[in-house]
Design a protein around this nucleic acid. Sequence first.
DNA 1: GATTTTTCGACCAATTTAGTCGAATTATAC
DNA 2: GTATAATTCGACTAAATTGGTCGAAAAATC
Lengths: 194, 194
Amino acid sequence: MHREKRDVAHKILLAAVKVFDKYGLRKTTMRDIAESAGMSKSSLYYYFKSKRDILSSVVKQESLTLTRKLQHAIQQDISPQQKLREYVVTRMHLLFELSVYYASLSEAYLEQYSFIEQEREAFTAFEIDAVSKILSEGVLKGIFRGRDILATAKTIIIIMKALELRLVISKSMDELDSTVDTMLEILFHGLETR
Amino acid sequence: MHREKRDVAHKILLAAVKVFDKYGLRKTTMRDIAESAGMSKSSLYYYFKSKRDILSSVVKQESLTLTRKLQHAIQQDISPQQKLREYVVTRMHLLFELSVYYASLSEAYLEQYSFIEQEREAFTAFEIDAVSKILSEGVLKGIFRGRDILATAKTIIIIMKALELRLVISKSMDELDSTVDTMLEILFHGLETR
DNA sequence: GATTTTTCGACCAATTTAGTCGAATTATAC
DNA sequence: GTATAATTCGACTAAATTGGTCGAAAAATC
């Protein structure tokens, strides 16, 4: 019974993602989610206490997927350059897939939800940590210059945010990958010791 | 002054298409259109008397583009098979571009608007006429079998409606084209005199 | 067949909606 | 310049839609 309750809750979240994708976060109503999940609006409230709660659950779920997969991508036994490349590419592909999370980072109307702001900050902290570690490792191995690592990490994250814009992504994924290649090429030759 | 009034009206329609695309027909509000057009909601009513009027104008405009380009595609001096191919391919590409028109054909909520129903019927009539003519020409030239042309045309239109589903289209356009090729291959060998 | 879990229709207050109107602003004509 | 016409907009309304509640009906479990 506990099992089943969780299953229904999960089904609702899947339905929510579907309509969030379709209409955007702001335009999606509880009625939309209910219809998509194939149940009445009232029943939704048996599993979630508000629309905010549903959105929060979706965001938390996608957030977990994102950080887990990013973490995994950079724990491979590869060079710091390859790690940075893996991080950037994986990050972009995931942000494209995890569309609700992406929207939560970019849609202005969400400022009303404090948990979104928290999530944004937590993710930024995660990114700074992850990129810094890659840079540190590169410096230790004599591959990257021993610059101010924190500042460098923040710069790289800013560049990634630029790449993440839907404008860039709306082209094909292959094209995106080669854009990343080019960018990383430039980035590396600025970073590596000569 | 007459000139400028039409320009503003046109600007509003472009803005409307943008937000219709973004939110869908049902979810788009006059406020959304006004914001997208960079003017106040009230001003919209100086140019259009209702949301229905705006939607109607967009649909009529796209409808004209669609039928004009389809007409043009089959007036080339090519074989009946090539004409049929041109028609199917052009139709699909256009329905993808003319997204509001596409939505107007498929979104259930629009049943409330009678002009949409009229438009659907008019387009179907256009299609039956166009495809029938291609088939007739083929029969005259001894290329297609002399079957019941109307029934055959209707069947082809049904097949096109299946291809038009966003499911198929969401793959790449190239893939779509080759799907069409394959389909037409099969279709022709059933139609041509052997 | 009693009890607990789950679903839902009816309902509510608050917000948002399409659409109106008259006054303010701007452009045009004289 | 100033009268006149074209255009914009803020304030407003009535109706529809919104997120959310509640208690009764179904289903599932015991």
